[in-house]
Amino acid sequence: MSDMNVSFPHLGISLNINNVAFSIGDYHIYWYGIIIGIGFILAFIYAMMSLKRFKIPSEKFLDCVIVGLITAIICARLYYVFFSWDFYSSHPDKIFAIHDGGLAIYGGLIGALLGGCIVAKILKLNIPAILDVASLGFLIGQGIGRWGNFINQEAFGTETNLPWGMMSENTGGVTVHPCFLYESLWCLLGFVLLHFFSKKFQKYYGQIFLLYLVWYGFERMIVEGLRTDSLYTPFLNLRVSQILSAVVMIAGIVMLIVFRKKNNFVHTTKALKDKVKE
């Protein structure tokens, strides 16, 4: 890819970017992969530093991460191919061409959770605690990884006149919503808030994960409606990620309410027993 000019006209910012970081012969190393890798490494470092707080053995957690990473890549591709089947049914040779792009973040999250939780179950780990650590790591990875979309000039939205509107050759020369930026800032803010919540206010394992579902689901449901590259359901003209985000957010809210009542019941029962003993 040649250099691309990306600007934020109303802010007076103009940049020249290239999605190739460097080349080794004819083999190109792309900034997208490097940025995703940095996000994963930082998320992993944070998770390893948090394991003691969540009472998770590091050696067993590493097994969950390795398997979760593999299943994340597989599911991210399967998710994208499934909802882009009109193209891939005519080009089956492209299904495994991951180097050409086509990884869906929701598919990756689902795959990571499935693979990681299966290993956690086998190793008899506390799955809700694993989910808490994973969700905080996801927010780091997503917050940083979205800048790969900026380098590729993808995942942007419809035309806008807002002061932070972005323009490039890929946007057709008009200012558009920088959706990658919205999600990046939202995820990083969510990480900061949930990190401190987990240290000061968390009442039970799994609570951080449920809050993550609500936090991310709310943002993605709104921002997905602005994007111009959404995947759609096969039979209805509905955005897949928007529907899934709404379901995820509602499920998170319901489960938070259920566990809050259950938690209150447990504490009330314990208090009554202690009172009787007195």
Results as ranks from 00 to 15, higher is better:
I151T: 09
M166T: 07
L136E: 07
M166Y: 10
V133N: 00
V65A: 03
W31Q: 01
V174R: 04
K203D: 09
E59L: 13
I144N: 07
V174P: 04
V214N: 02
I222C: 07
P128A: 02
T268W: 08
S230T: 10
Q207I: 08
I118C: 04
I105S: 11
V192R: 00
N170I: 12
N237G: 03
Y216E: 03
E154M: 11
V65G: 01
L226I: 10
E59C: 06
K262P: 02
S245M: 12
H177K: 01
K261H: 14
Y80T: 04
Q242N: 05
Y30H: 12
C179Q: 08
H195F: 13
R239I: 15
G115N: 09
I13F: 13
Y204M: 09
Y80P: 04
G39I: 10
P178T: 12
N152T: 15
D26C: 00
F40L: 14
F44M: 08
A271I: 11
T233E: 07
A134W: 11
F197Q: 00
S168R: 06
W147L: 07
L188S: 07
L162M: 13
S184T: 06
L123Q: 14
L139D: 11
L194I: 09
A47T: 07
I243W: 12
L181P: 08
C75L: 14
M255G: 00
V176M: 13
K124G: 07
I74G: 00
K55P: 03
P9Y: 13
L226T: 02
F22L: 14
Y79T: 05
Q202N: 08
C117L: 13
D3A: 06
W85C: 03
I257S: 05
L272R: 11
L51S: 01
T71M: 03
F44L: 15
S241F: 08
N161C: 01
P234G: 01
L42Y: 01
F150D: 13
M249R: 00
L125G: 05
E224G: 04
K60A: 05
C117T: 15
V214D: 05
N149S: 10
M4V: 13
D132L: 01
S230Q: 08
N19H: 08
D63Y: 09
N152D: 15
M255D: 03
D229F: 08
D229T: 06
W31D: 02
